[in-house]
Design a protein around this nucleic acid. Structure first.
Lengths: 138, 138
DNA sequence: GTACATTTGTGCGTATGTATG
DNA sequence: TCATACATACGCACAAATGTA
């Protein structure tokens, strides 16, 4: 599968689809580096902006991380610690505020989980590190 | 507060901070339109790319929606329907896959909630429309 | 410690396409 | 029809971070 500049779907979406597939197929396993922007630009005969937009898309999907001067790497499947949702509690998912992003050191494309307990207290957790559970009755 | 091109923080981050503050302060209430790209470009004397990146940032944070040919608008605080997390169930938050984005018609910056029940079945919900609850014991 | 190549970040200019009103 | 506005895409340039020789 290649990229068709005359297609109705944008070039950067086509490239993102292509890279996403190569990640899923194991062509780019977790931890591995994606080709550099310059490499992808040449490889597919497209502009750098299209390349950057496609990688940005993958970042916001939580699939890759990018480090300036280093490159983009496929994220590892996160380990999640289990947290019990107590009786009378509730939980919502949302994107972090910019302040939360900084203080919790969250990557792009990582939501937060907001837990409200029975007394109105609120706690916020990184969405890629926790799994909320409700135990079986016993 | 204005924008300083000589600052170490990127222009587009400065503008995003500024717009975010104006949204939070009620200067741009939910449903209202942000100034157009051209307007912001002139207003702050910065390039179009910086303007676009700042708005893109606000989109991925779930703060605004952008409609081509129309502009960017502040999102309304979502109504959430309550769903009970059953005994033996668990829940994680993550960003949707591209396929999920399409089929569930999710905006940018909207996570999904993945609910696993006691029997291993999985259900996925839009993160901006649901609130998971565990009822009080009675 | 220094120098260098590589890689991503930021920014500008330009052009064309497409949706809205 | 027309103006406005956002989307995509290319080119170029320089800055800043990284890793290595």
């Amino acid at each position: 599968m290649t990229i068709d500049p005359r297609s109705h779907t944008p070039v950067y979406v086509q490239l993102a689809d292509l890279l996403r597939q190569r990640i899923k197929s194991g062509d780019f396993p977790p931890g591995s580096a994606l080709p550099s922007e310059a490499r992808l630009t040449q490889e597919y005969g497209i502009g750098r902006e299209a390349v950057r937009m496609s990688i940005s898309l993958l970042r916001t999907e939580g699939l890759v991380n990018t480090v300036r001067g280093h490159g983009s790497h496929v994220r590892d499947a996160p380990e999640r610690r289990q947290i019990e949702l107590l009786a009378g509690g509730s939980v919502i998912a949302r994107m972090p505020t910019s302040a939360e992003r900084r203080t919790m050191q969250l990557n792009e494309g990582v939501p937060v989980i907001e837990v409200h307990d029975a007394h109105g207290a609120v706690e916020v957790f990184p969405g890629d590190e926790v799994e909320l559970t409700r135990p079986e009755q016993d």
